[in-house]
Write a protein that binds this DNA or RNA. Sequence first.
DNA 1: ATGAAAGCGCTAACAG
DNA 2: CTGTTAGCGCTTTCAT
Lengths: 355, 355
Amino acid sequence: MVNRNDIARIAGVSPATVSYVINNGPRPVSKETREKVLRVIRETDYQPSAIARNLRSKSSSTLGLIIPDTHNPYYAEVIRGIEGIAFENGYTVFICHSGYDDQRELQYVNILRMQRVAGVIWIPATSNSEPYYKLVDNGIPTIVLDHFIDIESAPYITTNNFQGGYIATEHLIKLGHKRIGAINRPVELGHSKDRILGYKAALCDFGIPVDESLIVCGGYNIKNGYEALKTFLSLNHPPTAIFAYNDIQAIGAIRAAYQSGIRIPQDLSIVGFDDIPEASFTCPALTTISQAKYDMGRLGSEMILKLINEQDLPAETKIILDVQFIERESTGPAFVRQEKNDNQPDISSEKKKYI
Amino acid sequence: MVNRNDIARIAGVSPATVSYVINNGPRPVSKETREKVLRVIRETDYQPSAIARNLRSKSSSTLGLIIPDTHNPYYAEVIRGIEGIAFENGYTVFICHSGYDDQRELQYVNILRMQRVAGVIWIPATSNSEPYYKLVDNGIPTIVLDHFIDIESAPYITTNNFQGGYIATEHLIKLGHKRIGAINRPVELGHSKDRILGYKAALCDFGIPVDESLIVCGGYNIKNGYEALKTFLSLNHPPTAIFAYNDIQAIGAIRAAYQSGIRIPQDLSIVGFDDIPEASFTCPALTTISQAKYDMGRLGSEMILKLINEQDLPAETKIILDVQFIERESTGPAFVRQEKNDNQPDISSEKKKYI
DNA sequence: ATGAAAGCGCTAACAG
DNA sequence: CTGTTAGCGCTTTCAT
């Protein structure tokens, strides 16, 4: 593999000059010499070793992303946002899948320390904040994404889940509903707690008493939404509307409703959360609360890069993003979503017969 | 940041000894010395610099994963498989999102070269095989995942798409269908070509003539499946069954069918492809062809690690995985899928009132 | 069983 | 404007 000394030798200059050309400094290089060097670099397809540069400069061009679940479509969008900004700024991202396991999170923290990453974007798996301390105590800038973290110095970017719960419930109240069921999830982290708080706040503000029997606990799966609605339907006074923890639960609830001959939204209004594309395909009538997932990723990348490159903290290190209310058409297929890659070249000429 | 010399100094040994302890070789270290060193390492929470090790040993513990679309649930599972095996073997994965853009693929190839990754798992974005050559010509072991590649020396792992198309069509034929429509996609890579070839092969084998008017081209979106079915329905003799390129298209077709009052599967049988969980939620009656996505990722990771660590190629470097036929219940919700994280602790005690 | 020392490919200070 | 050189933190060969 060709290295800097080879380039220097071929170009007839010193290795230092090659560096100055590559890095555009810190010393000026004459136009002639620069072009000679660049030509050799091009001809040999030389790529400087990031490893040697990182070792020497005691900095690195890599980021760590610790994420609970790459499989979740919600996080998939976050990843895209993070990776996009990182790429634009010359950073490469290590993907670290914690699988909602805080032991694995800590293992990855150590791996990222060994890799001497420039910074870490951490989407917590549990409420254990040890990974954060372990990173910053070792001098690695870290931000918390998608979660509020109660550490004075900790930067974070999350979504206003309280607001989401409030807006969702307010919407249902304004449709005339008085009995609004909520499907919660096991409380580990702040998301569901805040959403339910928003739900209760809206009820209070509109003078509707909170009925704890209308708040049931569901899990992360479709099945849990399904079962939650079955539970609601077995009540003496079933709710006429549902606020689901997320769209996944909502889909399950919708399925249960259909099975019982209940029409959405004529007989039962449902508001979900997260605006998962698949949910809109399933039920065009599903109203949902959308989070700026892609933007959250982008903002996260931008914030960590600022932390890495600036001596002092950027002005804003604690960001709570607004949610957006998404009301879909209540009839017809949900094809309002504009997607890319929609070009359909005519391939009739390419069609081939099976022999 | 504490380094190896610090450890050596504190433990009262030479830096070399510290290395021998960390690496368990290549030279033996007395039990006493080893434990003394390990204690200091533990107390100082020392993490050796992967960067320095990589520079010195001219090897690295990182892999590159070039992937068209992290957002696609299909690839999300592949990532999990890859990352799982990599983690178990002490490798960290750079995630490189090409976005179906071969220019960006090449940019990432250069970034991975700079990072001196030990190997690359490449899921091609287009039929351009330049990335492969660029990597292997520079001494970076590379395997192609999820696609067949027609290069003698190129290792790959893909799925038997032909078989999938055949099985899907055979299933429909055995249900008694004679007019079976196929929804294709723009042919860029081998997947759709092979699936359609399998479709045609099955028709031939069962003596059903191929009718090109029953093969329509759809894109990657739900919408395309929707439109494809509308096209079929406008024919004088619409098909009584559909083989869709994938479940996404199938969902669109199902939506169109429902809209026209056509029942699935009573009036129209549909077989999809890829077994995307969301699809089964949408339509429990959707039969599909499942690929071993997670296993493909794991096998890919294993293969690249073998290539990295062995002088000569492993026995099998070209693997075509069998598909699996998934027939779902034709009634009721699709809750047969067993998922993890299904524990639902009672949180009633944690419920808090909104103040 | 252990220490000393060369050098991986770079960056940047020092010296012309 | 350019060349020389001292390390960055390790691995590993050479000594002892």
